[in-house]
Design a protein around this nucleic acid. Structure first.
Lengths: 248, 248
DNA sequence: AAAATTTGTCTATTGATATAGACAACTATA
DNA sequence: TATAGTTGTCTATATCAATAGACAAATTTT
């Protein structure tokens, strides 16, 4: 960042070591702490953040657990390479093509699927009757073997009967929709928010408790504006940033 | 939401009461807890979240402090009305026009301004030499007297000398740029992330410690693609959601 | 009026969080 | 080979976070 002084807060329900771990992660993402180089010594960090050395050690221990840092006794604590993926969002958002160039392999794993009655929210988004059957897919986006997103997706069960099989086979929403005669689609709307990861996110995204996830709620439509898909996706904020491409 | 079960995590550096306070806020935002109605009783909430009643009380106390809930002895704890603002983001993102219809009044308050040498990141974004003078504005977006955003903005000091005075007078970026002959501009790129609010955000946005902010980093350009503005904005996630408008 | 429900207050106990200081173990450098 | 710098381990203490139970105070229902 650019000298935006963010300070440590006490008695806010978030422990100091968790806040400092977050700051170190930010520092790595912003380039303040170079990759493959040593962090400042623990005493210097403690001074910088205004806490005890042991508190810094707790933060470092958490990041070592996450695989971000590697301590070496007598030498220092080293930053392992860990670039944040930049996930593009726009009218033509596609999971696989969006990450091209940043990863060598990516696909969507189907965790589970079920059929359920549409809630009011989903019925409105998909333009179907409330209570009508919808197929719900729980998926995880993976790139180079690492989880980068966790999504819950709903389709009209009448129109897309069996789409869960197509997803399991192809590992791609785009490819699955082709089987139903949809060769192109657009993202109609995206609403963005953020929250702490819940237990499901933690497990599916291989996160440490307390991590923050970016949440997108999106509706995809056919070229003539017919809604076909409603999805809520969660991205780990420490590993993924969302890049909004103008008019894309 | 739609029955996406998010659970409470222990020993993660985030206290249970903070997590439960966040869940209650989510519940209000998603409609699980209706506005102007009573929450479930403390004992029921404790059971639902699997914690002690006193822990629930700590969470409620924090939200009472934030002005979200009002307890009444013997009757219940009531949800005050509190809609999240929906802030649109797209190629034509403007603070004031974006919130039209949701608020009756809005403007940007200039907190401070300074001139400083451009860091590498800002120089690249603005297409100027590293170390060249840039004007930095610290601003707060306000709607109906409530803080809804906190931004740090950089302009080329040579081209936009005195823009801080225009901002102070007009309370609008769009109006200020007009004084420099720029009648229209586009948002070239937006990068989105999320983190815990720092001390500055907490004070400027009137947040409680531990709150989450959505962070956008954006570059605005003239119609012919010349970069004119680099900005980092922070939005309180509990009060604002970002709505991405396709092709807008 | 009585009972049931709900929030408010108090005491007590346990474990996690944070600070403080001392020293050991290891590495790099003068 | 010293010496300085850095991480690792230990003890001790104070505060915060969470649980547990009991009962008071206020409101609503029976």
């Amino acid at each position: 960042m650019t000298g935006l002084a963010s300070s440590i807060e006490r008695r806010n329900g978030v422990s100091l070591w968790r806040q400092i771990a977050d700051r170190i992660l930010q520092g790595i993402a912003s380039g303040d702490f170079a990759e493959n180089a040593a962090l400042p010594p623990e005493i210097a960090l403690a001074e910088r953040y205004g806490v005890n050395r042991h508190t810094v050690r707790s933060a470092i221990a958490a990041l070592v657990q996450e695989g971000v840092l590697r301590p070496e006794q007598g030498r220092g604590t080293f930053v392992l390479s860990r670039k944040r993926l930049s996930y593009p969002i726009g009218a033509r958002t596609r999971f696989s093509t969006g990450l091209q160039g940043q990863t060598s392999e990516r696909h969507i794993a189907l965790l589970s699927s079920s059929t359920e009655p549409a809630s009011r929210r989903i019925a409105e988004a998909l333009g179907i009757a409330r209570g009508a059957a919808v197929i719900r897919l729980e998926t995880r986006g993976e790139a180079d073997g690492h989880a980068v997103s966790r999504a819950t997706t709903w389709f009209d069960a009448k129109r897309f009967a069996g789409i869960e099989m197509a997803m399991a086979e192809t590992g791609s929403i785009t490819a699955s929709l082709k089987r139903f005669g949809i060769n192109d689609y657009l993202r109609q709307s995206t609403v963005l928010s953020a929250r702490h990861a819940d237990a499901d996110d933690l497990a599916a995204l291989d996160l440490q408790p307390g991590a923050i996830v970016l949440v997108t709620v999106a509706v995809n439509v056919t070229l003539d504006g017919q809604p076909i898909q409603f999805a809520e996706s969660r991205f780990p904020a420490e590993r993924v940033e969302l890049r909004l491409s103008a008019g894309d």
